[in-house]
Write a protein that binds this DNA or RNA. Structure first.
Lengths: 149, 149
DNA sequence: TCCTTATTGCAAATGTTTCGCAACTGCATT
DNA sequence: AATGCAGTTGCGAAACATTTGCAATAAGGA
């Protein structure tokens, strides 16, 4: 029910409209991205794709990510570790919570926080264009309640 | 009223307590940082400091920033452009709004947003350790009201 | 099938930050 | 004031992630 094939086909049309070509490499990278449910970096994408087609190069991954980002097909994030991580952009906006122990990335969204940000920007005389919000936290142990032990 | 000299002296004691030394270079960099009211990157700090002492090296700036960060004397941020930017940490916590046209960085703080973040993390089963919040916005023209023209 | 041109792989170049190492310098102690 | 041990520095080279020049290749419309 993931619709990977459709998604890839969708991108194909999108690329065509922009005068770009749907190459084997792009198809491959698109497939890897569609199958990913995490936030891989360029090397991670390369590794996965390379396993399916060892003629692929890392440069092409970078170039493709740039094209896809321009097309709005993916989103790029840079968390604390500094490297660019990617995710497909077919879901609604969300922010990220990063488990500082495992590195796991959890997605969340909050209308309240979006609204609050907009208001804060407005109070400073700005129109909010975009934002970056990352929460870094530690998993609470199940038995522990709010305060004290 | 800035108290740069006192601040530098304060760091001196702090360093001493950690078994570190107050060198000419550190004094210089500290002074540059204290005088900065923006968020310079390593090269920017180096440039300003180099003007006062051309024997300083960029490596030393990087090393010093690491020491100071460990000591909690400064904070490091990485905005969208990827490079590390620094600011002295003698003020209370705040987040940043970046003017996407001028690159200017405006500081702000909001208890409401802090609290909201804590609550969101808690709802996901996490204890919030730290966060990164950057707003990217465009300056509103003075005459424009809330909605429409 | 042919042609134009976008795209690729490769290696070299970037830009930022780190590191090895020998020379140097705080600074606590004589 | 002189001494000695470590912490520090400057320099160049290395480590990284990412970008780019270029000649070869391959989409995909004619």
């Amino acid at each position: 029910m993931t619709g990977i094939a459709q998604r890839v086909a969708g991108f194909e049309g999108q690329l065509k409209d922009a005068g770009l070509r749907m190459t084997q490499q792009r198809r491959l990278i698109l497939r890897v991205l569609a199958e990913a449910d995490d936030h891989p970096d360029a090397k991670g994408i390369f590794t996965r794709a390379f396993a399916l087609d060892p003629t692929l190069s890392l440069s092409t991954v970078y170039r493709t990510m740039k094209v896809l980002e321009t097309q709005g097909a993916i989103e790029r994030h840079a968390f604390e570790d500094g490297v660019s991580r990617y995710e497909h952009a077919d879901q609604e906006h969300h922010d990220h919570l990063i488990d500082i122990e495992s590195g796991e990335v959890i997605e969340f969204s909050s209308d309240a926080i979006e609204e609050l940000q907009r208001r804060i920007a407005a109070e400073l005389g700005y129109e909010l264009v975009r934002h970056r919000l990352e929460l870094y936290g530690r998993k609470k142990r199940p038995g522990v309640r709010g305060k004290k032990g």
